[in-house]
């Protein structure tokens, strides 16, 4: 990794695919190095002149981006075999040649663009919200202790980027596992002073096939989470709530 010093050209291999049903192919691009480049600025460079290293004309690479400061999750892709946001993937700190692929766990749209709506579906499944209909003034909600607020703040940083699902070996087509992100969001809203009222509903939504019990504890999710959310802690927390729910029949 001592290629951090001045380099003449950067070589980037990008996995290309015209559409969901088109065959995938790899294209190699060569760019002039500029200090401070990140993967996004490389893609922008390629867009200016979409031509492979061999001089073949090609289409500009499609990708998604938004905040460019690692808080939106839109530009998540697999860089050198590891999932991360491309906006904070600095060329100086990466191994060369760069290898860029779309995430593999979501339906592909085109090139580096994937459809992450399954994550939104998962949030709906676990009811990751506080239901207040807003038809009349309920007055101020219960107060949150600073400790609670701090704990919940960490979980609230989830930007639904998909890193945890991409790195999770238990999240795959053979398995119904919902993945760490949605479980952690259920925990976030279960810990909300008002959201608590519906805690049982959220917990029960994860007592199904693909629920929290399917986690295999490879614990890659915490390793790759760009927001350092304690995802495995959330899963275990949910497991405890589920155990309590499970023994709830003893109260009857």
């Amino acid at each position: 990794m001592n290629q951090t010093i001045k380099r003449e050209d950067i070589e980037i291999k990008i996995k290309r695919q015209e559409g969901p049903n088109s065959p995938a192919r790899w294209e190699t691009f060569s760019l002039k190095y500029r200090p401070g480049m990140n993967v996004i600025s490389c893609l922008m460079e390629i867009r200016k002149k979409p031509q492979t290293k061999e001089g073949m004309k090609t289409t500009p690479v499609c990708w998604e981006q938004n905040c460019l400061e690692e808080v939106c999750g839109a530009c998540t892709m697999v860089i050198n075999g590891r999932v991360r946001q491309s906006c904070t993937a600095l060329v100086d700190k990466l191994e060369h040649p760069l290898r860029i692929e779309p995430m593999s766990k979501f339906p592909l749209v085109r090139d580096l663009v994937v459809n992450r709506s399954s994550m939104f579906e998962s949030l709906k499944k676990v009811k990751a919200w506080v239901p207040v209909d807003g038809t009349y003034d309920l007055g101020p909600g219960p107060r949150m202790s600073p400790k609670e607020a701090q704990y919940r703040y960490e979980l609230s940083k989830c930007m639904t980027c998909g890193c945890c699902l991409e790195a999770c070996p238990q999240y795959n087509p053979q398995s119904a596992f919902i993945g760490p992100a949605a479980i952690s969001q259920a925990v976030l809203f279960n810990a909300h002073p008002t959201g608590k009222r519906n805690a049982s509903e959220r917990t029960r939504s994860l007592m199904v096939s693909g629920g929290a019990q399917d986690c295999g504890n490879a614990q890659n999710c915490v390793q790759v989470c760009p927001q350092n959310i304690p995802l495995t802690q959330s899963i275990a927390e949910m497991n405890r709530d589920i155990t309590k729910e499970l023994f709830g029949f003893l109260k009857e």
């Binding site: 697999v78 075999g81 590891r82 790195a167 070996p169 238990q170 795959n172 053979q174 398995s175 119904a176 596992f177 399917d214 295999g216 504890n217 490879a218 614990q219 890659n220 390793q223 790759v224």
Partner: peptide, 16 residues
């Protein structure tokens, strides 16, 4: 229902 990705994510827990 499991899959492997040790090459990309060679963490101890993933090996376990």
């Amino acid at each position: 229902t499991s899959s492997l990705n040790l090459k990309s994510y060679g963490y101890a827990k993933n090996w376990f």
